[in-house]
């Protein structure tokens, strides 16, 4: 079951995230569960493979916003870098960042099991 303590241990900046949810723990956890249920990484991979930077940016940007608001720092960091790179249409290898995002997202998912 997802708890704030588990999220804290995972590396999320829970206090900041909670403050943004007016310190309502149940609401905060519900939001994190929505993020977990809305896995955009598969679609992001497809966009990156197809070098569809516009679509890739939309997906990374959306994830960045959600993870940023909830202070899910471990996922937010790589996704933010991907989003910034794609926004600037940087033709670079996103594999390492993408893999890191997947690893962190999987860890997050495990917390909710």
């Amino acid at each position: 079951m997802l708890t704030v303590d588990a999220l804290r241990e995972y590396g999320a900046d829970v206090d900041t995230g909670l403050a943004r949810c007016m310190n309502n723990e149940a609401f905060y956890l519900r939001m994190v569960e929505i993020v977990i249920g809305d896995d955009k990484l598969g679609a992001l991979k497809e966009a990156l493979d197809a070098r569809d930077f516009k679509r890739g940016f939309e997906l990374a940007h959306a994830m960045k916003g959600a993870c940023g608001n909830l202070s899910l720092t471990p996922v937010f960091r790589p996704v933010c870098e991907i989003s910034d790179g794609l926004r600037a249409e940087k033709d670079m290898d996103y594999t390492a960042l993408y893999d890191e995002a997947v690893t962190q997202f999987e860890k997050l998912k495990k917390l909710a099991e």
């Binding site: 943004r20 949810c21 007016m22 309502n24 609401f27 939001m31 929505i34 993020v35 809305d38 959306a62 916003g65 959600a66 608001n69 909830l70």
Partner: peptide, 16 residues
């Protein structure tokens, strides 16, 4: 907002 989390969080704040 196209992102559900953003909509809900803002809605939660403003909805009071």
């Amino acid at each position: 907002d196209d992102e559900e989390i953003n909509r809900q969080m803002l809605g939660f704040i403003v909805g009071s």
